[in-house]
């Protein structure tokens, strides 16, 4: 005989806002019973959605690769699909809010236009005017090593929306995700636009609004370190200037 699986009830406080219906946002109290097969916060949210289908949130791969289900979980940005349900303390409601600092489209869905605008502003693609080689552009293993910790970013916006500098100047400050991506191409030996990239960032707003608060490092679900990448950009600017 197998032992019965322990069920657990999770209580939630969820930010709800439907601009077509609600005059202003409110917090909804709702609970859901989960079984031990529900491992991650997203599993509980899928059950919540079955209970109240007006609840809106983004989700896709459910394994921390697509970056769609980024949200503010108990005050800290993270991915619902990577957050362990078992780690939530008993008796306290789980508070879910949309990512801070971006306009809310509905419930937990935010308008990420500003975030992607900043990402595009750093030209997130390889610039190389040499004729295309027969196969691929090769790198030495050491040069390739430089890209570790940079290329893994999934653009979930957890870091950028946790950054106070981005909250105050979202239109001017590139933000941690954008700057990490910028350094990913600056550090790439196959890229030929290093100077132009540095020129583009040498700006009191675009780069120097970073005050090394390090919220980005604290929240990154992939364990990346945008602050370190920003430090390296500053280092290269210093090398270039002195």
């Amino acid at each position: 005989m197998t032992t019965p699986l322990a069920m657990r009830t999770y209580h939630f406080k969820i930010y709800r806002y439907d601009p077509d219906k609600d005059a202003k946002p409110y917090m909804q109290d709702i609970s859901v019973v989960c079984d031990p097969m529900d491992k991650k916060l997203l599993d509980a949210m899928v059950k919540l959605k079955a209970k109240d289908d007006s609840l809106s949130f983004r989700r896709s791969c459910r394994e921390g690769v697509c970056g769609s289900d980024a949200m503010n979980i108990n005050g800290k940005n993270g991915l619902a699909c990577l957050t362990d349900l078992a780690a939530f303390p008993e008796g306290k409601p789980i508070v879910l809010r949309p990512l801070p600092g971006l306009p809310v489209v509905r419930d937990l869905i935010v308008d990420m236009t500003q975030f992607f605008k900043q990402y595009l502003s750093i030209k997130p693609y390889l610039v190389n005017d040499d004729p295309l080689p027969e196969r691929e552009r090769l790198q030495s293993p050491e040069d390739r090593e430089e890209l570790n910790g940079l290329y893994e970013c999934i653009m979930c916006a957890c870091c950028t929306t946790a950054c106070p500098s981005f909250w105050w100047n979202p239109d001017k400050f590139v933000g941690p995700a954008g700057l990490l991506a910028a350094y990913r191409f600056i550090a790439d030996t196959r890229d030929q636009a290093t100077n132009e990239r540095l020129d583009n960032l040498e700006d009191p707003y675009r780069l120097f609004r970073c005050h090394t608060i390090m919220n980005c490092v604290d929240v990154c679900p992939k364990g990346l370190n945008p602050t370190k990448a920003i430090g390296k950009i500053k280092e290269m600017l210093v090398q270039r200037a002195v």
Binding site: D171, K172, E202, P204, R206, L207, A241
Partner: peptide, 14 residues
């Protein structure tokens, strides 16, 4: 129009 690109900052930071 949003204007950025003042091209200073590294000297002050340093």
């Amino acid at each position: 129009r949003l204007v950025v690109g003042a091209h200073y900052g590294i000297k002050d930071w340093l």
